[in-house]
Simulated scan of single mutants.
Amino acid sequence: MYILRCADGSFYVGSTVDLERRLGQHDAGQGAAYTRRRRPVQLVYCEDFPRIDDAYLREKQVQGWSRAKRLALVEGRLHDLPRLARSRTGGSGG
Rank of each mutant, 00 (worst) to 15 (best):
P40D: 00
R37A: 15
G14R: 01
S87L: 05
T16F: 09
L73H: 07
D27G: 02
L57K: 12
G9P: 02
V17Y: 10
Q25V: 01
P50A: 12
S10T: 14
V62M: 11
A85G: 15
G31R: 04
R67I: 09
E20W: 11
Y56Q: 07
V44Y: 01
T16L: 11
Y12S: 03
A85N: 15
R5Y: 06
V41D: 04
G31I: 07
D18K: 13
Q61T: 07
L81M: 14
R77D: 08
L71V: 10
E20M: 12
A85E: 15
M1G: 10
P50H: 04
A33G: 09
H26F: 11
L57I: 04
F49W: 11
K69T: 02
R67A: 13
V17N: 13
V62T: 10
E20V: 15
A32R: 10
P82Q: 13
E75T: 07
R39Q: 06
I3T: 05
Q63K: 15
L73V: 13
L43F: 00
L4T: 01
A72H: 06
Y56N: 03
T16H: 11
P40M: 00
K69Q: 12
Q42Y: 01
Y56P: 00
A7K: 08
E75F: 07
A28D: 06
Q25E: 15
Y56H: 06
S15G: 02
V44L: 02
R36D: 01
E20R: 15
A28M: 03
Q25F: 09
Y2I: 05
L81E: 09
G29V: 01
D18I: 08
Q42G: 01
A55K: 06
G93V: 06
Y2L: 10
L84C: 05
E75V: 03
Q63C: 14
D54N: 09
R67S: 11
Y12H: 14
Q25M: 12
G64C: 07
